[in-house]
């Protein structure tokens, strides 16, 4: 049961974690994240890094789509911009790892602002179409600006180096990628405790009255685009160091849909949503692979027959969540929390 949560100061009342239980869970999560690489095998570590990268990008998209209400299908293209920026900086200028990641974010943010310009005039589906158009233009640039992007064959990225240590394995990269993602999630959570985060939500809920309250719409919409694509750029930068090769096909258009689905399945407009959504979307296909393997002895030839079924089951799961949990996975967590607020006294 939740008791003794009354606060004596406003600062305590407006904290990110307001109950002892929340704090305890956060410590457990931190411990699990720190210890995981020593327990997991290479394959699962690879997946963990991939989840972390996807969480960073999904959190960015959530700022734009979930909180500001601007639907974007350009997230993959912004990630690609970040990945190419890292490849270029690392290959041509040899600048240090963390700087490259940061610069990747800034370059993507600049591109994001450009793509966001139509958002003052168009909303909803129309804006989504505009961002699709932008991703195809960017794809064209990636394929044809050969001197920077290497054209269709792409560019190779040397292993990241930090403080003289080469970060080539998922084990080493894990200790860089996960903290960066954690920081980005924390920053997003902070943002929505301040006037800028509130302004984003105001624009989503009712843009006309937001304007009367003194929120300049264009400036804030562009800021949301910039921030969202900054997150995508950083995620793309980490992706580039992780996979060490960037081609125009590294970030197909389907990846943008992947992120939009992750944010929706996880829960639009919540901090937890994109984390759960990205983990779900990344891990469930892998888990289904295991299920298929287990079914092998029961159904001979299961691999060949069930692989296509895996995709269908994955799609069906997404539809299942949209229908039965339209608020997303985050709502399930909230419901469990509410249950324990009163437990064991059921009302």
């Amino acid at each position: 049961m939740r008791i003794a949560t009354a606060k004596e100061t406003y600062i305590a009342d407006e904290g990110l974690l307001t109950t002892r239980t929340q704090r305890a869970w956060m410590i457990v999560l931190a411990l699990v994240l720190v210890l995981a690489p020593f327990v997991l095998n290479a394959y699962w570590l690879y997946l963990a890094c991939l989840v972390a990268i996807n969480v960073a990008s999904a959190t960015g998209l959530n700022i734009l789509t979930g909180y500001t209400g601007l639907v974007s299908l350009g997230q993959a293209a912004f990630m690609a911009v970040g990945a190419y920026a890292v490849a270029f900086l690392d290959g041509h200028l040899g600048t240090p790892f963390l700087l490259n990641i940061f610069a990747a974010g800034l370059v993507a943010a600049a591109v994001g602002v450009l793509v966001g310009v139509p958002s003052l005039r168009v909303k909803g589906l129309y804006l989504a179409i505009a961002t699709i158009a932008a991703s195809f233009i960017l794809h064209f640039v990636f394929t044809n600006w050969v001197s920077v992007t290497g054209g269709m064959s792409g560019v190779n990225v040397a292993p990241a180096r930090l403080f003289g240590i080469e970060l080539a394995s998922p084990f080493a990269l894990y200790f860089v990628i996960v903290p960066i993602t954690a920081l980005m999630v924390l920053a997003a959570a902070n943002l929505f405790r301040t006037r800028i985060g509130r302004a984003f939500i105001a624009i989503r809920d009712r843009d006309i009255s937001a304007e009367v309250l003194g929120i300049p719409l264009l400036q804030y919409k562009l800021m949301s685009f910039a921030l969202s694509s900054f997150y995508a750029g950083v995620a793309g930068g980490m992706w580039a160091y992780f996979f060490r090769v960037v081609t125009p096909e590294s970030f197909p258009f389907a990846t943008s849909i992947f992120f939009l689905a992750a944010v929706i399945v996880g829960g639009l407009g919540t901090i937890l949503g994109p984390i759960l959504g990205a983990a779900f979307m990344t891990l469930v296909p892998e888990l289904l692979k295991y299920v298929v393997e287990w079914l092998g002895p029961v159904f001979p030839n299961a691999g060949a027959a069930l692989s296509p079924v895996r995709t269908i089951v994955f799609g069906a799961l997404i539809i299942f969540f949209l229908v039965f949990e339209p608020q997303g996975l985050a709502e399930i967590v909230r419901r469990i929390r509410r249950f324990f607020h009163l437990w064991p006294f059921k009302t």
């Binding site: 943002l191 006037r195 800028i196 939500i201 809920d205 009712r206 003194g214």
Partner: peptide, 26 residues
């Protein structure tokens, strides 16, 4: 703003008088 609490709605009124920029907010 239907998606927000009463407190956040009221706080939004002060938006134009506040100075926090994006980096400070993050």
């Amino acid at each position: 703003f239907k998606g927000m609490t009463v407190l956040d709605n009221i706080k939004l009124g002060r938006h134009a008088h506040m100075k926090t920029n994006l980096l400070q907010a993050l």
